[in-house]
Amino acid sequence: MTQLSAGEIRIALIGAAAVAAAAMLPVFDQGFYLTLSLNIVLFAALCTAWTLFSGPTHYISLATAAFFGLGTYSVALGIDVLPFPVLVAAGGAVAALLAGLVGAATLRISGVYFVIFTLGLAELIRQIVSWTQVKLGASMGLYVFTDFSEAHIYWMMLALTVAVFATGWLITRSRLGFALQIIGNDEQVARHCGIDTARLKIVLFMISGAFIGMAGAILAPRYSYVEPPAAFSPTVSFLVVIMALLGGTRRLWGPLVGVVPFTIVMEFVSARFPNDTPIVIGLAFLAIVFVLPDGVLGRLEQLRARLRRSRPASPAAVAAKEPA
């Protein structure tokens, strides 16, 4: 467990090279492609953080907007008082706290009940924030004026994405990850093995929520004017689920192969058909459901299996089948 295998080292090197290449992007373009890449990296971070929890446990969480908005608000409320990195950490901490409370209350329920609860959660938090602001007589629109450029936000978001991946990888190597694998396969069996399933799920939900909160905090300077409807927009929750499921949630890098094509296709559609976007997107979803029922990841693995079948099986190929 502690020793890195050759395969893992190779993946780490490829990953490092990809991150380095991505980090160089602002040198070449400060305009549209940087902004598009920032959106891709944002959703890569959100979807991967979402998958940290929802992947192994199979709980569909629509609470992303709640965590995200809390992160945004942490920055908006404190930007004049505290340094930015502290606020990002605070955004993560507040989101983790909320995830802990919610998890303790709801992770014993499952299936559709959990989905509905998390959907309501974002709205609940939005109303609480609005209500508090009304009671305090504070102005509801908050400014976030910083000197950050798109490139700065992009780099911070990229760093966060790397952190999400590193955390996800560490979890799979830990006792926690092993326990999660058992929970994911059969929760009954996990409980009989003596695994405290509720506690593990809460811990995981908190980690996932913290990263989403931090993403919201990092993005706050981009709005320059923060209001509850924008910060707690339910669209974010749905987009994250759609992209992550499009990619596939059985691998850590699954969401990534969903986020990248999805964002680019969406972009293409909204640029070419500005007046018919909803129709074209609807057709695209239909096509995805029919063509890629198991997500991009499922299709990739299917292709790999077919390739392997056409060649004689070798011990190396079997070894490579181990999860990355």
Binding site: D29, Q30, G31, F32, Y33, L34, T35, L36, N39, L42, E150, L219, R222, Y223, A230, S233, T235, E267, S270, A271, P274, N275, T277
Partner: peptide
């Protein structure tokens, strides 16, 4: 040249970037 910002800040920023640089 017109784009839909979907009433979202991220989309709006991206659209302005596209208009200005592409």
């Amino acid at each position: 040249v017109e784009y839909d910002d979907k009433t979202s800040g991220e989309e709006a920023v991206k659209n302005i970037q596209r208009l200005a640089t592409v």
